[in-house]
Design a protein around this nucleic acid. Structure first.
Length: 145
DNA sequence: GCCAACGTTGGC
DNA sequence: GCCAACGTTGGC
C-alpha cells in the first residue's frame, strides 16, 4: 500500500464537502497536469491512503485522510471520449480535529525532504513516504491509519 | 494584490 | 529543439 497527498482549494471542495457526500465518497476530478495525471492513472491503487490538503486558503494544511476506493479511470469532466485526464474515487476516512498547517509541517525536521515542502512545488497529487506519513500522525496525536 | 516558480504554447 | 510569452498555482 502507498501513501499520497491530494490538494484541493476548500473554496471549491473542502473536506467538509467530502463528508457530506453519499457514503462520504466522491470522484477526485479536474486534475489537469501531466505529472499528476500519470500518478492518478498509473500509481494510485485501491486501498491506498491519501492526505486531504487544503491549499490557497487562510490556513493551508492537511485536513484529514482519505482512502482510494477506485483506481484511475478517465476523468468524466473532460471533453467527450477523451482519455487524456484521469480521476480516482476517494472516501473520507477521518477529518483531523485540527488542521496540520503548512507552517507546522515546515517546522518538523523529519519532513524536510517532503515533496510538498520543496521550493516551487505545485503538484496537486504527490507521493508521501511511510516515514512522512507516520511523522505527520505523530503531530496529530491521533491513532495511525 | 503580489510575485516566484513552473507548465504550456507557439513561432522560428 | 530553443525560448519568449503567457497562464496557473499557491504562499504570503
Amino acid at each position: 500500500m502507498k501513501y499520497w497527498l491530494l490538494k484541493s482549494e476548500p473554496s471549491a471542495f473542502s473536506i467538509d464537502d467530502l463528508a457530506k457526500k453519499p457514503n462520504q465518497t466522491t470522484l477526485w476530478d479536474g486534475v489537469r497536469n501531466y505529472q499528476a495525471r500519470n500518478l492518478l492513472r498509473d500509481e494510485l491503487k485501491t486501498n491506498d491512503l491519501a492526505f486531504f490538503y487544503h491549499s490557497s486558503c487562510d490556513v493551508p494544511g492537511i485536513a484529514g485522510v482519505m482512502k482510494i476506493v477506485k483506481a484511475g479511470y478517465p476523468d468524466p469532466t473532460q471533453a467527450e471520449n477523451s482519455e487524456r485526464w484521469y480521476a480516482v474515487d476517494v472516501k473520507l476516512i477521518r477529518k483531523f480535529s485540527q488542521i496540520i498547517s503548512l507552517s507546522q509541517l515546515r517546522e518538523n525536521l523529519k519532513l524536510q525532504q517532503m515533496v510538498l515542502l520543496r521550493k516551487g512545488n505545485r503538484l496537486s497529487v504527490m507521493p508521501v513516504t511511510l516515514h512522512e506519513w507516520q511523522s505527520i500522525f505523530e503531530m496529530t496525536g491521533e491513532d495511525l491509519c
